[in-house]
Amino acid sequence: MSSPAAVADPAAPTGGPAAGGPGPARPPRWRRALTTLADGWLLLALLVVWEVWARADPSLFFPPLTKVLGEFGSVYLTSDPSTLFLSAGFWDNAGVSLARFLQGWLGAIVVGVAAGLALGRSRVLSRMYDPIVRFFMSMPKVALLPVAVQIFGVTDAMNVFLIFLGTVWIILVNTADGIAGVDESWVRSGRSLRLSRFALFTRVLLPAAAPRILAGIRVSVGTALILMIVSELYATTSGLGYQIVYAERTFAYLEMWAGLVLVALIGIALNGAMSAVERRLLRWERRTGLADL
């Protein structure tokens, strides 16, 4: 493994300011939640700046935050608990978008990890396909958007195709690098236990490569969201991106900003969920201090 790390998400939970060693006992959960809340002061301050700025210098295109939130509430929130307080407008737009996101992204994870395993374990395959895969990884996949529309027309398949194609390479490369970089001692240890090939993959190689694989998947969340929105802005008749561009074209700027807030919240939720999964799966890595290796 002489190649530089293809992706190491700078925000991956490895040895950063937040990485805790096997140090003193952690404070209780509510206490930590409170600390996190208190750490939101800068975010809050920036949002206040938005509000003040927009009020001081009124512009049709740049409304104050409170007005945007009011619009958001009236468009996407209802008082009906049966739909989790979310309106039909929410489910119509966010539901469609998220379905596209999940199909493309999960497909990319399945294909990317499987192909990455093959490339990571086979010297011949990796020598043959490494250059091509890296070529595809550095391609700005969004440029394929016009072609995707040509192939699939304005269908969900077009969005799914673009999301898949845009994320599969980075997952593949990280899986392959992660697998190829698994400490040989672990493999030797597994072999000495006479594990079957399958068990060696599932019990040793995959968990050992998990930090790297998850780093790739985490980066891919952001890329998938970007592509989901771009493809919906470019040509669709439904979804979050469509909602934004439709509001823009009908000069409903408040509604456009409300759509943006919804996209932001979904992005934050997805990234937060991803971090939680990562933390949960990689507890061992943070504790053993192997994170920095």
Partner: peptide, 27 residues
């Protein structure tokens, strides 16, 4: 059976002690 020098790299940190041992009898 083999006992390696570097325990941190021969035991699997992603498994409990129980599962580490059980894995040895998997075959």
């Amino acid at each position: 059976a083999v006992v390696f020098q570097d325990y941190s790299r021969s035991l699997f940190p992603w498994m409990s002690v129980r599962r580490n041992l059980a894995l040895a009898a998997a075959s």
